[in-house]
Design a protein around this nucleic acid. Structure first.
Lengths: 215, 215
DNA sequence: CTCTGCGAACATACGGTGTATGCTTACAGC
DNA sequence: GCTGTAAGCATACACCGTATGTTCGCAGAG
């Protein structure tokens, strides 16, 4: 057994360390030097296992995808769909900073680990009995919704707990006559029960889907 | 009249230059030095008009929001909703890199310019006759979908034209028995008519909404 | 007109970043 | 034990955000 204190570097260990740093200190903290330090190694040593920083970031995304927890199937297709959506949301929320990485990706992900959750979701959607083409469309629509919702959730666009919508600052200086809807809805805009809101939008899409199917 | 070649710097001019650089060369190109050069000025001069780089990036987001083009109202609520969604998508696609900025925002936007499109959308949704609380939920659901779809679209997650899904590379090495759905749907996953797909998901949500209303 | 005051623009410097290049070290196979 | 090879390291470069201190140009006062 080799000395465990000086275990060899591997691509996996490098990516894992980078993910750890990102989760703990944010995306900006993920520098080659910082990740190296996390592993007790100089920055340049990482390049023996990772082409460049972009490749490292890609590795992080892949590693996160690999953590997707496949929900158990139930007897209810609707519930399966909901569970899959929830699992995807949970995963994104567990690693909030991957959202930024996803948002400036420039190519589809192709690693098996990244594809497996996709395969899983496609299976569920096909179960609804849509045509192949429409299955793909529904898949993308749901994917878009989930990702977009979580992005807004994480980014704090919905107000909610995090920084709280600065109503008091705003309400005063807002030209009332120009923002009637905003002002009327302010009480509900200020707070946000993320779970409930997520389920609401999910329900919207699912209802639309069954409506489309029964055409 | 002051010499036009040496016009004074303003916050507006700085932000505008930064937006121009971002659109033309990407987000990474937006550095204080680069923006300064765009204006024929040293990097540090920018700090007379912008607190720091984060404030500059916030300014970019705000400037983009201000470009939102409000569609004319029609006699059809559904069509109005669709038009608003399309306008929002168009705006995001015109400045693809703001997506990244939106995704690591940490607070709601509060400038009037940023709020105006929101006010507009809230008005349309309230027109459907939902309760105040439900109007907000629907607003967030739609917003999530649109943003998420465009993010996936821009990021190239859908394959489509940009880098084309590397099917040939993938199809060969895919463990076929583990990815039956993926392989079956591959033809539709490879190509993507973004406009049509966007409309499909939008339709899904709108149908769900009317279904919910007629409960 | 000069003088003054003040904000805008600049110059410099510091500690950080990604990574190209070349060196050193340690281990695998003979 | 010797050697080839790859892993890890040290150095260096260009660029980054920005703190700090200086200089410049113009507005208003006398």
């Amino acid at each position: 057994m080799p000395t465990p204190t000086k275990e060899r570097l591997t691509r996996e260990r490098v990516v894992e360390a980078a993910l750890k740093v990102m989760d703990a200190e944010g995306l900006d903290a993920v520098s080659m030097r910082r990740v190296g330090r996390e592993l007790g190694v100089e920055a340049m040593s990482l390049y023996n296992h990772v082409a460049d920083k972009d490749a490292l970031l890609d590795g992080i995304v892949e590693a996160v995808m690999a953590q997707f927890e496949f929900p158990e199937a139930t007897s209810d297709r609707m519930e399966d769909a909901r569970n899959a959506a929830r699992a995807w949301r949970d995963l994104l929320r567990e690693h909030p900073h991957v959202m930024v990485l996803l948002s400036h990706q420039r190519k589809p992900m192709t690693s098996l680990n990244a594809l497996r959750p996709m395969e899983y979701a496609l299976g569920i959607i096909r179960g609804f009995g849509l045509s192949d083409e429409e299955s793909v469309r529904a898949f993308r629509a749901f994917g878009g919704y989930i990702q977009g919702f979580v992005m807004a959730e994480i980014a704090g666009m919905f107000g909610g707990e995090k920084p709280k919508f600065p109503v008091e600052d705003l309400a005063g200086q807002l030209p009332v006559e120009q923002f009637p809807n905003f002002i009327t809805l302010m009480p509900y805009l200020v707070e946000c029960d993320f779970d409930a809101e997520f389920e609401y939008g999910l329900d919207l899409m699912l209802r639309g889907l069954v409506a489309k199917i029964s055409d």
